[in-house]
Design a protein around this nucleic acid. Structure first.
Length: 419
DNA sequence: TCTGGGGTCCTAGGACCC
DNA sequence: TCTGGGGTCCTAGGACCC
């Protein structure tokens, strides 16, 4: 059985911002969500001020300014590129990389190596990643994904790499607080504590039937993983749906403006579908008013397309129909979102009984158009071609990003200068 | 004034069938 | 008074993750 490894960057977004700003090496840093709304990444210095991830920025703005904290809007272009570089290097060292999120990846590791060999190999990996990207990436190794996650947690506190061997498991799990276990959120932690279970050690002692009854199959899987039996498979990460959405800077009330924002999201999802070489069979639209206000309104509607598609204008048309079902007058809308699911591979197309040859050739033309748009976006940049309906609004114009850093690694004019 | 965005999985319960 | 038993499929909502 192979060992499982987990590579995970520390305060990923905040660390990316530090790479090109050595002057901020020891400064507190926060990175804000879209629209500069919430804190989504923060360094230890900021955590020490008692601030948590998810905190609305306006509530702590004064405190942060007083402590000399550097503030950034999310620069996904930069983070995505640094992430790509990290995983590229990881691929030189290990096999079967399974990307879990922008800053995390599981991988497999040969078990025939002895403990010292594993430890020195992962230390070397950690150091190479730091030297070549400027990012501190913690490496944890264990018998299962859940154990690798625990090992990674320990690595973060030590020197960046940790191998949780079978021999060490018992001692470490015994006193591990239940809420630090991956897969146990605050609600289940609270529930477990009401049963007087406070540590992972106490949890793995419990009877399988009891766990299944109180915490469902998901809870039982976590317990098996803690016992060293792998239960979380790579298949679990197959994409089933994705979405594009954003909060507006100012409330939106008109049907046309909402549709315009949805059209921007359609372009984003269409482009993502083309790059993955898949088509979506269902399109959904969600619109929301401000959830912190009275009379909160949120509605969702979806349409199954007659033919799976990756063509933006087809999605826009579907969004218009969805919106007609859920749009209400006199509501101040705060956000909109487009979902796509029911994926199929691009080459399989099931024609319906009443399709005419003309219709299939139209569908072919649309496929080609979608590919063509993607090619233009790749060579000329994302904002050079877009549906006419979105002419006055681009996705990023809809939200505020006051503290955006340069795209150091992906745009020539933003490249770092050395004086 | 201001409160993110993007995912996954599971379960209960309703609708429907024989 | 009292209303079967065994399925499937779908959806909303909850819980979790980053």
């Amino acid at each position: 059985m192979a060992l499982v490894g987990l590579a995970d960057s520390n305060s990923f977004f905040a660390s990316c911002e530090k790479v090109f700003r050595p002057d901020l090496k020891n400064s507190p840093i926060v990175v804000l969500s879209n629209n500069d709304g919430c804190i989504v990444a923060l360094t230890q210095e900021v955590k020490d001020l008692g601030i948590q991830r998810g905190e609305p920025y306006f509530k702590v703005e004064k405190l942060l300014k007083k402590s000399g904290c550097a503030v950034f809007s999310s620069n996904y272009t930069l983070y995505q590129d640094i992430s790509r570089r990290i995983f590229e290097i990881l691929g030189i060292f290990v096999e079967d990389i399974d990307l879990y999120s922008i800053d995390e990846a599981f991988f497999s590791f040969p078990e025939y190596l002895n403990e010292n060999e594993v430890s020195s190999y992962i230390n070397k990996l950690h150091n190479t990643l730091y030297r070549r990207t400027g990012m501190k990436v913690s490496i944890g190794i264990g018998r299962t994904k859940t154990l690798a996650k625990i090992a990674n947690h320990i690595a973060k506190k030590n020197n960046g790499a940790f191998y949780l061997s079978k021999e060490k498991e018992e001692k470490i799990i015994k006193n591990l607080p239940i809420k630090e276990v991956w897969g146990i959120g605050y609600r289940n932690a609270y529930k477990l504590e009401s049963f007087k279970i406070h540590t992972a050690g106490a949890l793995i002692e419990k009877d399988d039937k009891w766990i299944r009854k109180n915490f469902s199959i998901t809870g039982l899987r976590t317990v098996y993983e803690l016992r060293g039996i792998p239960c979380i498979n790579e298949d679990d990460y197959r994409i089933r749906s994705f979405a594009s959405g954003i909060s507006f800077q100012k409330p939106v009330t008109s049907f046309e403006e909402l549709l315009e924002s949805l059209a921007c999201h359609c372009s984003v999802v269409a482009s993502k579908l083309v790059s993955k070489n898949i088509k979506a069979g269902t399109v959904g639209v969600q619109i929301n008013s401000n959830r912190f206000r009275d009379n909160y309104y949120s509605s969702f509607y979806y349409i199954k397309l007659t033919q799976s598609s990756c063509y933006g204008p087809t999605f826009i048309k579907a969004c218009r129909s969805c919106l007609e079902h859920i749009y209400k007058n006199n509501v101040e809308y705060k956000s909109s979102r487009v979902f796509v699911y029911d994926f199929s591979f691009s080459q399989d197309r099931q024609l319906s009984l009443f399709d005419t040859p003309n219709y299939s050739s139209l569908l072919k033309k649309r496929d080609n158009m979608a590919l063509c748009v993607k090619e233009i976006e790749t060579s000329e940049g994302k904002n050079v071609i877009h549906p006419a309906i979105t002419y006055s609004k681009r996705k990023h114009d809809l939200s505020s990003r006051k503290y955006l850093s340069p795209c150091y690694t992906t745009r020539w004019k933003d490249i770092a200068k050395v004086y």
